[in-house]
Design a protein around this nucleic acid. Structure first.
Length: 255
DNA sequence: ATGGCCTGCAACGCAGGA
């Protein structure tokens, strides 16, 4: 079964693209970030009419996460335990025997800023939460927009980006600590094209020139990594008119 | 060399993203 994640940068604007892409790619589960919708405005009926089971945690204008699934999904939590926050950035749910954790990790804005400290604190609390979840579930998927490019090969110009937000050593260490709980970055389980990215700046012809970062990830716990068949980034929707700045990322599991 | 985009909200400019 295929699992996918996509930061849509406004579900209101991108709903048609989500429907078009998911019809063609046929994921069993699609995690969305930056829906930018209050719950009252979530297009639940339109999605239900197309056979999607949905969970969502939104707020007006900012953030917002959702899960679309072809089978029933059961909410685990939409709050990061131990982190007092109004920002809707996490949605954990059960799909069959899998625990699914959809994350929209804070951007961090600039190294040393309040938002950067918030990002690192959020990641630390997420790591604690995942540690607990791994004691309860064997099959755990953590997917979403991590706002971290784990290695230099995930950055189009590592020299220019060195030390800045999204690539700074503390962020990469936080990502590494999370992975070290017992996950694999599904993308790197396979041979991949050089210069593979999941986000490109709207400015400066970022996509046309492939000046991007790989910051959207699907992490699999060991039993799932062993059953992972493929992983990739579908850049097609990034080339559509009025695209999200992120591309959908997916992985195929033999379960 | 510089800055060049997009979204939502609310008000015609801003905050925020990455």
């Amino acid at each position: 079964m295929k699992l996918a994640t996509w930061n849509v940068n406004s579900l209101r604007v991108r709903l048609e693209q989500v429907l078009q892409w998911s019809a063609a790619a046929a994921p069993v589960l699609l995690a969305l970030q930056e829906t930018k919708l209050p719950d009252a405005a979530f297009p639940e009926q339109a999605l239900a009419n197309l056979g999607w089971h949905v969970l969502y945690a939104g707020q007006p204008a900012y953030n917002g996460v959702a899960l679309l699934a072809r089978r029933p999904i059961e909410l685990i939590t939409c709050k990061l335990p131990g982190f007092e926050d109004v920002q809707r950035r996490l949605l954990a749910a059960r799909l069959d025997d899998l625990a699914i954790v959809n994350v929209y990790v804070p951007n961090g804005q600039a190294v040393g800023s309040d938002k950067y400290r918030y990002k690192l604190a959020w990641l630390k609390t997420l790591t604690t939460f995942l540690h607990t979840l791994l004691s309860e579930y064997d099959q755990v998927v953590v997917l979403g927009d991590f706002n971290i490019a784990p290695e230099d090969r995930d950055v189009y110009d590592p020299k220019a980006w060195e030390g800045s937000v999204l690539v700074s050593p503390p962020e990469r260490e936080a990502f590494h600590a999370l992975v070290e709980l017992g996950f694999s970055d599904s993308f790197r389980l396979f041979e991949q094209p050089a210069n593979s990215y999941s986000w490109w700046n709207y400015r400066q012809g970022g996509f046309r020139r492939n000046r991007g970062l790989r910051i959207d990830h699907i992490l699999l716990s060991r039993p799932l990594a062993e059953r992972c068949q493929s992983a990739g980034i579908d850049t097609t929707p990034r080339g559509w008119p009025r695209p999200s700045d992120h591309a959908p990322v997916s992985t195929e599991l033999d379960i």
